[in-house]
Amino acid sequence: MSSLALDSSPPRTRRRFTGWFSYLALSPSLVVLAIFFALPMGIMIGMSFADPQTLSPTLDNYHRFLTDGLSLAGFCRTAIMSLLVAVCVTALGYPVAYFLARSRTRWRAVVFALALSPELAGVVLRTYGWLIILEDRGFINDVLLYLGLIASPLPLSKNLFAVVVGLTHVVLPFGILSLMTSIQGIDPNLERAAQMLGASRLSVIRFIVLPLSVPGIVSSMLIAFTMAASAYATPALLGGAGFKVLATMIYEQVLFYINWPFASVMAISLLVMMLAISFAGVRYESRRRLRTAGAKGDN
Protein backbone atom coordinates (compact mmCIF):
# COMPACT_ATOMS: atom_id res chain seq x y z
CA MET A 1 0.00 0.00 0.00
CA SER A 2 2.60 2.44 1.11
CA SER A 3 4.69 2.25 -2.04
CA LEU A 4 1.79 2.27 -4.46
CA ALA A 5 2.48 5.72 -5.80
CA LEU A 6 6.05 5.59 -7.06
CA ASP A 7 7.14 6.69 -10.45
CA SER A 8 10.47 7.04 -12.11
CA SER A 9 13.08 8.68 -9.99
CA PRO A 10 14.64 11.99 -10.94
CA PRO A 11 16.82 13.41 -12.43
CA ARG A 12 15.79 13.16 -16.06
CA THR A 13 19.20 13.20 -17.71
CA ARG A 14 20.41 10.09 -15.91
CA ARG A 15 17.25 8.26 -16.87
CA ARG A 16 17.84 8.98 -20.50
CA PHE A 17 21.35 7.58 -20.22
CA THR A 18 20.20 4.34 -18.57
CA GLY A 19 17.48 4.02 -21.23
CA TRP A 20 20.13 4.22 -23.88
CA PHE A 21 22.33 1.73 -22.08
CA SER A 22 19.39 -0.63 -21.64
CA TYR A 23 18.68 -0.85 -25.33
CA LEU A 24 22.37 -1.49 -25.93
CA ALA A 25 22.43 -4.27 -23.33
CA LEU A 26 19.25 -5.76 -24.73
CA SER A 27 20.41 -5.78 -28.34
CA PRO A 28 22.56 -8.98 -28.32
CA SER A 29 19.53 -11.06 -27.26
CA LEU A 30 17.32 -9.39 -29.83
CA VAL A 31 19.90 -9.90 -32.57
CA VAL A 32 20.63 -13.55 -31.71
CA LEU A 33 16.93 -14.35 -31.79
CA ALA A 34 16.43 -12.38 -34.99
CA ILE A 35 19.21 -14.20 -36.85
CA PHE A 36 18.78 -17.69 -35.49
CA PHE A 37 15.06 -17.77 -34.83
CA ALA A 38 12.92 -15.13 -36.55
CA LEU A 39 14.79 -15.12 -39.85
CA PRO A 40 14.99 -18.95 -40.15
CA MET A 41 11.30 -19.23 -39.30
CA GLY A 42 10.50 -16.73 -42.04
CA ILE A 43 12.68 -18.58 -44.53
CA MET A 44 11.03 -21.86 -43.59
CA ILE A 45 7.56 -20.42 -44.13
CA GLY A 46 8.68 -19.01 -47.48
CA MET A 47 10.24 -22.36 -48.40
CA SER A 48 6.94 -24.13 -47.81
CA PHE A 49 5.60 -22.28 -50.88
CA ALA A 50 8.55 -23.19 -53.10
CA ASP A 51 8.74 -25.91 -55.72
CA PRO A 52 11.18 -28.63 -54.55
CA GLN A 53 13.06 -28.58 -57.87
CA THR A 54 12.84 -25.06 -59.23
CA LEU A 55 12.06 -23.18 -56.00
CA SER A 56 9.41 -21.15 -57.87
CA PRO A 57 6.33 -20.19 -55.85
CA THR A 58 3.66 -22.86 -55.66
CA LEU A 59 0.98 -24.33 -53.40
CA ASP A 60 1.82 -27.88 -54.51
CA ASN A 61 3.51 -28.79 -51.25
CA TYR A 62 0.38 -28.03 -49.25
CA HIS A 63 -1.69 -29.83 -51.87
CA ARG A 64 0.54 -32.87 -51.57
CA PHE A 65 0.37 -32.77 -47.78
CA LEU A 66 -3.42 -32.83 -47.87
CA THR A 67 -3.80 -35.44 -50.60
CA ASP A 68 -0.96 -37.96 -50.48
CA GLY A 69 -2.63 -39.78 -47.58
CA LEU A 70 0.61 -40.58 -45.79
CA SER A 71 1.16 -37.08 -44.48
CA LEU A 72 -2.35 -36.53 -43.16
CA ALA A 73 -2.22 -40.00 -41.62
CA GLY A 74 0.99 -38.98 -39.86
CA PHE A 75 -0.67 -35.78 -38.70
CA CYS A 76 -3.61 -37.73 -37.26
CA ARG A 77 -1.32 -40.36 -35.71
CA THR A 78 0.54 -37.54 -33.97
CA ALA A 79 -2.67 -36.01 -32.68
CA ILE A 80 -4.09 -39.33 -31.46
CA MET A 81 -0.82 -40.32 -29.82
CA SER A 82 -0.57 -36.93 -28.08
CA LEU A 83 -4.15 -37.15 -26.88
CA LEU A 84 -3.56 -40.65 -25.49
CA VAL A 85 -0.42 -39.43 -23.72
CA ALA A 86 -2.34 -36.47 -22.30
CA VAL A 87 -5.04 -38.76 -20.91
CA CYS A 88 -2.55 -41.27 -19.49
CA VAL A 89 -0.38 -38.59 -17.90
CA THR A 90 -3.34 -36.94 -16.24
CA ALA A 91 -4.90 -40.20 -15.05
CA LEU A 92 -1.63 -41.61 -13.71
CA GLY A 93 -0.46 -38.29 -12.35
CA TYR A 94 -3.62 -37.48 -10.42
CA PRO A 95 -3.21 -39.85 -7.45
CA VAL A 96 0.45 -38.85 -7.07
CA ALA A 97 -0.41 -35.15 -7.33
CA TYR A 98 -3.21 -35.53 -4.80
CA PHE A 99 -0.88 -37.27 -2.40
CA LEU A 100 1.83 -34.62 -2.87
CA ALA A 101 -0.65 -31.80 -2.40
CA ARG A 102 -2.23 -33.17 0.77
CA SER A 103 0.34 -35.30 2.56
CA ARG A 104 2.08 -33.83 5.56
CA THR A 105 4.20 -36.92 6.28
CA ARG A 106 7.86 -37.68 5.69
CA TRP A 107 6.84 -39.80 2.71
CA ARG A 108 5.91 -36.68 0.80
CA ALA A 109 9.57 -35.77 0.19
CA VAL A 110 10.34 -39.32 -0.90
CA VAL A 111 7.43 -39.48 -3.34
CA PHE A 112 8.29 -36.01 -4.63
CA ALA A 113 11.89 -37.01 -5.33
CA LEU A 114 10.80 -40.28 -6.96
CA ALA A 115 8.19 -38.56 -9.11
CA LEU A 116 10.59 -35.93 -10.41
CA SER A 117 13.79 -38.01 -10.59
CA PRO A 118 13.28 -39.07 -14.23
CA GLU A 119 13.61 -35.43 -15.26
CA LEU A 120 17.27 -35.52 -14.32
CA ALA A 121 17.91 -38.64 -16.33
CA GLY A 122 17.31 -37.21 -19.77
CA VAL A 123 15.10 -38.62 -22.48
CA VAL A 124 17.60 -41.05 -23.98
CA LEU A 125 18.22 -42.95 -20.79
CA ARG A 126 14.52 -43.39 -20.11
CA THR A 127 13.75 -44.38 -23.66
CA TYR A 128 16.60 -46.86 -23.57
CA GLY A 129 15.08 -48.28 -20.39
CA TRP A 130 11.75 -48.79 -22.13
CA LEU A 131 13.50 -50.37 -25.11
CA ILE A 132 15.06 -52.93 -22.79
CA ILE A 133 11.71 -53.56 -21.15
CA LEU A 134 9.45 -53.67 -24.20
CA GLU A 135 11.69 -55.26 -26.82
CA ASP A 136 10.79 -58.62 -28.37
CA ARG A 137 13.52 -60.21 -26.28
CA GLY A 138 12.99 -57.64 -23.54
CA PHE A 139 12.15 -57.81 -19.87
CA ILE A 140 8.38 -58.23 -20.08
CA ASN A 141 8.40 -60.81 -22.87
CA ASP A 142 11.17 -62.62 -21.07
CA VAL A 143 9.13 -62.88 -17.89
CA LEU A 144 5.97 -63.90 -19.70
CA LEU A 145 7.78 -66.53 -21.73
CA TYR A 146 9.52 -67.88 -18.64
CA LEU A 147 6.20 -68.17 -16.83
CA GLY A 148 4.79 -69.92 -19.90
CA LEU A 149 1.96 -67.41 -20.25
CA ILE A 150 2.78 -66.77 -23.89
CA ALA A 151 4.28 -68.95 -26.59
CA SER A 152 5.91 -66.24 -28.68
CA PRO A 153 6.97 -62.67 -27.79
CA LEU A 154 4.23 -60.05 -27.75
CA PRO A 155 4.80 -57.13 -30.14
CA LEU A 156 5.33 -54.47 -27.49
CA SER A 157 7.72 -52.13 -29.26
CA LYS A 158 7.82 -50.23 -32.57
CA ASN A 159 4.14 -49.38 -32.25
CA LEU A 160 1.67 -46.87 -30.78
CA PHE A 161 1.66 -48.66 -27.43
CA ALA A 162 5.40 -48.34 -26.94
CA VAL A 163 5.46 -44.68 -27.94
CA VAL A 164 2.58 -43.79 -25.62
CA VAL A 165 4.23 -45.63 -22.72
CA GLY A 166 7.56 -43.92 -23.36
CA LEU A 167 6.10 -40.44 -23.79
CA THR A 168 3.82 -40.81 -20.79
CA HIS A 169 6.91 -41.53 -18.78
CA VAL A 170 8.71 -38.51 -20.22
CA VAL A 171 5.85 -36.08 -19.61
CA LEU A 172 4.48 -37.45 -16.33
CA PRO A 173 6.58 -35.27 -13.98
CA PHE A 174 5.29 -32.10 -15.67
CA GLY A 175 1.70 -33.34 -15.43
CA ILE A 176 2.15 -34.17 -11.76
CA LEU A 177 3.56 -30.71 -11.01
CA SER A 178 0.73 -28.88 -12.71
CA LEU A 179 -1.96 -31.07 -11.09
CA MET A 180 -0.27 -30.70 -7.70
CA THR A 181 -0.25 -26.90 -7.91
CA SER A 182 -3.92 -26.91 -8.80
CA ILE A 183 -4.92 -29.29 -5.98
CA GLN A 184 -2.84 -27.33 -3.48
CA GLY A 185 -4.94 -24.32 -4.38
CA ILE A 186 -8.10 -26.03 -3.12
CA ASP A 187 -8.89 -25.12 0.47
CA PRO A 188 -8.64 -28.41 2.47
CA ASN A 189 -11.49 -27.11 4.65
CA LEU A 190 -13.82 -27.63 1.69
CA GLU A 191 -13.07 -31.34 1.86
CA ARG A 192 -13.59 -31.34 5.63
CA ALA A 193 -16.83 -29.43 5.21
CA ALA A 194 -18.09 -32.01 2.71
CA GLN A 195 -17.11 -34.82 5.07
CA MET A 196 -18.96 -33.14 7.94
CA LEU A 197 -22.01 -33.00 5.67
CA GLY A 198 -21.81 -36.78 5.33
CA ALA A 199 -19.85 -37.25 2.11
CA SER A 200 -17.70 -40.37 1.84
CA ARG A 201 -14.05 -40.18 0.74
CA LEU A 202 -15.12 -41.11 -2.78
CA SER A 203 -17.88 -38.49 -2.88
CA VAL A 204 -15.47 -35.84 -1.62
CA ILE A 205 -13.11 -36.59 -4.50
CA ARG A 206 -15.94 -36.90 -6.99
CA PHE A 207 -17.93 -33.80 -6.03
CA ILE A 208 -15.36 -31.45 -4.48
CA VAL A 209 -11.77 -32.15 -5.50
CA LEU A 210 -12.26 -33.23 -9.11
CA PRO A 211 -14.52 -30.33 -10.15
CA LEU A 212 -12.28 -27.79 -8.46
CA SER A 213 -9.12 -29.20 -10.02
CA VAL A 214 -10.47 -29.05 -13.57
CA PRO A 215 -8.13 -26.15 -14.41
CA GLY A 216 -5.18 -28.28 -13.30
CA ILE A 217 -6.46 -31.22 -15.34
CA VAL A 218 -6.79 -28.99 -18.39
CA SER A 219 -3.31 -27.55 -17.99
CA SER A 220 -1.79 -30.98 -17.40
CA MET A 221 -3.49 -32.25 -20.59
CA LEU A 222 -2.23 -29.24 -22.53
CA ILE A 223 1.36 -29.61 -21.34
CA ALA A 224 1.29 -33.33 -22.04
CA PHE A 225 -0.22 -32.88 -25.48
CA THR A 226 2.23 -30.24 -26.63
CA MET A 227 5.25 -32.06 -25.23
CA ALA A 228 4.17 -35.35 -26.81
CA ALA A 229 3.36 -33.83 -30.20
CA SER A 230 6.76 -32.18 -30.47
CA ALA A 231 8.83 -35.05 -29.04
CA TYR A 232 11.37 -36.55 -31.36
CA ALA A 233 13.70 -39.04 -29.65
CA THR A 234 11.07 -41.22 -27.99
CA PRO A 235 8.93 -41.82 -31.09
CA ALA A 236 12.09 -42.28 -33.15
CA LEU A 237 13.42 -45.03 -30.89
CA LEU A 238 10.25 -46.68 -29.60
CA GLY A 239 8.11 -46.17 -32.70
CA GLY A 240 10.77 -46.43 -35.37
CA ALA A 241 9.60 -47.33 -38.83
CA GLY A 242 6.53 -49.05 -37.40
CA PHE A 243 4.99 -45.90 -35.97
CA LYS A 244 5.92 -42.63 -37.62
CA VAL A 245 4.81 -39.27 -36.26
CA LEU A 246 5.23 -35.79 -37.69
CA ALA A 247 8.52 -35.21 -35.85
CA THR A 248 10.16 -38.32 -37.26
CA MET A 249 8.63 -37.73 -40.70
CA ILE A 250 10.06 -34.20 -40.77
CA TYR A 251 13.46 -35.62 -39.92
CA GLU A 252 13.17 -38.10 -42.80
CA GLN A 253 12.20 -35.36 -45.24
CA VAL A 254 15.20 -33.27 -44.25
CA LEU A 255 17.91 -35.90 -44.01
CA PHE A 256 16.83 -38.74 -46.35
CA TYR A 257 14.69 -37.14 -49.06
CA ILE A 258 16.32 -33.72 -48.75
CA ASN A 259 12.97 -32.20 -49.65
CA TRP A 260 13.15 -28.82 -47.86
CA PRO A 261 9.81 -27.45 -49.06
CA PHE A 262 7.87 -30.52 -48.00
CA ALA A 263 9.74 -30.71 -44.67
CA SER A 264 8.75 -27.07 -44.13
CA VAL A 265 5.09 -27.84 -44.79
CA MET A 266 5.17 -30.69 -42.29
CA ALA A 267 6.94 -28.53 -39.72
CA ILE A 268 4.31 -25.83 -40.23
CA SER A 269 1.51 -28.38 -39.80
CA LEU A 270 3.07 -29.43 -36.48
CA LEU A 271 3.44 -25.78 -35.46
CA VAL A 272 -0.19 -25.11 -36.36
CA MET A 273 -1.34 -28.09 -34.28
CA MET A 274 0.64 -26.80 -31.29
CA LEU A 275 -0.53 -23.23 -31.64
CA ALA A 276 -4.15 -24.34 -31.98
CA ILE A 277 -3.88 -26.37 -28.79
CA SER A 278 -2.13 -23.56 -26.90
CA PHE A 279 -4.69 -21.06 -28.17
CA ALA A 280 -7.52 -23.29 -26.94
CA GLY A 281 -5.76 -23.41 -23.57
CA VAL A 282 -5.40 -19.65 -23.37
CA ARG A 283 -9.05 -19.19 -24.36
CA TYR A 284 -10.15 -21.65 -21.69
CA GLU A 285 -8.02 -19.97 -19.05
CA SER A 286 -9.22 -16.43 -19.83
CA ARG A 287 -12.85 -17.57 -19.86
CA ARG A 288 -12.39 -19.28 -16.53
CA ARG A 289 -10.79 -16.12 -15.10
CA LEU A 290 -13.74 -14.10 -16.34
CA ARG A 291 -16.20 -16.53 -14.81
CA THR A 292 -14.55 -16.62 -11.41
CA ALA A 293 -14.11 -12.85 -11.43
CA GLY A 294 -17.83 -12.52 -12.22
CA ALA A 295 -18.76 -14.89 -9.42
CA LYS A 296 -16.70 -12.82 -6.98
CA GLY A 297 -18.34 -9.65 -8.18
CA ASP A 298 -21.79 -11.05 -7.46
CA ASN A 299 -21.06 -11.59 -3.80
Binding site: I43, M44, Y251, S264, L271
Partner: peptide, 10 residues
Protein backbone atom coordinates in the same frame (compact mmCIF):
# COMPACT_ATOMS: atom_id res chain seq x y z
CA UNK B 1 5.94 -21.70 -28.44
CA UNK B 2 7.70 -23.32 -31.40
CA UNK B 3 8.50 -27.05 -31.12
CA UNK B 4 12.21 -27.79 -31.10
CA UNK B 5 12.03 -29.99 -34.15
CA UNK B 6 10.50 -27.06 -36.09
CA UNK B 7 13.20 -24.70 -34.86
CA UNK B 8 15.75 -27.31 -35.92
CA UNK B 9 14.37 -27.53 -39.46
CA UNK B 10 14.25 -23.75 -39.73
Amino acid sequence: SVPQIVKGVA
